[in-house]
Write a protein that binds this DNA or RNA. Structure first.
Length: 290
DNA sequence: AATCATCACAACCGCCATCTT
DNA sequence: CAAGATGGCGGTTGTGATGAT
């Protein structure tokens, strides 16, 4: 009945990945593609849970990942998307090519959350923070006010304003006391085809830092990307591009995605297998073929 | 120089929808 | 159809790096 367990827990290594383990994982996926995560560790000679391998690959080793802090524009887009999607990090991440859900989640918790609080904006509701007195009034007048911020966080909501991250504390003048109401699917649907456009465009265009803002504009102005895929079509951009379900597609995509940037130098059809077997790791994130 | 606090992020955990047997 | 595994997701934790005192 059912399938075999993903890993037998016994003898499975945990904790930080070593360079050697990274090398094994990369070599295996480059040569064989992403097949079955359960069997991958064994085949790749890793004493890791398949789940751990998948996480390591998707969050850290994938060659199409960007590294480094999120740009201002990316940050703005994250806020905008978070206002609609809540903590659905994977969905948010799918709109930011090269970024992972984990990375965005971390950035949200360590940077954006604090910035919003500093600006007097509730990072959960994306509404201006209400003081204690007002909070009491709101909670006493609302029958469903017992719902925690966590539950509210799970639901998409319509932004009442366009939030712009500022490095300074000024311009905290929008003090609507609106309580965000969770939308039903019908509301989501209708909203997705109307007010979302305005909100997205506004927030994107308001960001003004040169190339990044141009990039963001191009992302935001793509209605099929923002509207259709956000609510109707969940095909992730990054995953669709980096499909390694087969060895062939894996190798092709490696090249398409500038695997050289990742550290893989060019390889030929004839010697690629041998070359990749001798991948040499210089540090945690740099690999090259010798 | 030592200690403590904070930051940044990789990794783990548990849950859930889906899939397989 | 039921049981159980898989893959994916979001929340949380652990830990090294950095800054402040």
């Amino acid at each position: 009945m059912g399938r075999q367990p993903c890993c037998d827990k016994v003898g499975v290594k945990k904790g930080p990945w070593t360079a050697e383990e990274d090398k094994k994982l990369i070599n295996f996926i480059v040569n064989n593609g992403q097949c079955c995560w359960r069997t991958l560790p064994k085949l790749a000679g890793l004493k890791r849970c398949g789940k751990s391998c998948r996480l390591r690959w998707t969050n850290y080793l994938r060659p199409d990942l960007k590294r480094g802090l999120l740009s201002h524009s990316e940050e703005q887009l994250v806020i905008d998307l978070h206002a609609r999607l809540g903590n659905r990090w994977s969905k948010i991440a799918s709109r930011l090519p090269g970024r992972t859900d984990n990375e965005i989640k971390n950035h949200w918790n360590t940077h954006i959350k604090k910035k919003l609080l500093k600006m007097g904006i509730d990072p959960v509701t994306h509404q201006p923070l209400v003081d204690n007195h007002q909070q009491q009034l709101v909670s006493s007048s609302s029958s469903s006010s017992s719902s925690s911020s966590q539950s509210a966080e799970q639901l998409p909501r319509q932004p009442q304003q366009n939030l712009m991250i500022k490095d300074t504390d000024d311009d905290n003048k929008n003090n609507n006391n609106g309580v965000p109401a969770p939308m039903n699917s019908q509301q989501e649907s209708s909203w997705s085809s109307s007010s979302q456009i305005t909100s997205t465009e506004n927030s994107c265009c308001a960001s003004g830092d040169g190339d990044e803002s141009l990039l963001l504009d191009s992302i935001c102005s793509d209605e099929s990307l923002i509207l259709n895929s956000l609510w109707l079509d969940d095909t992730p951009l990054v995953d669709a591009l980096w499909d390694t379900t087969t060895p062939t597609s894996c190798l092709l995509d490696c090249q398409d995605f500038g695997i050289h940037d990742f550290g893989f130098n060019s390889f030929t059809d004839t010697d690629e297998q041998n070359s990749l077997q001798t991948l040499k790791m210089e540090d945690k994130t740099h690999y090259h073929i010798v």
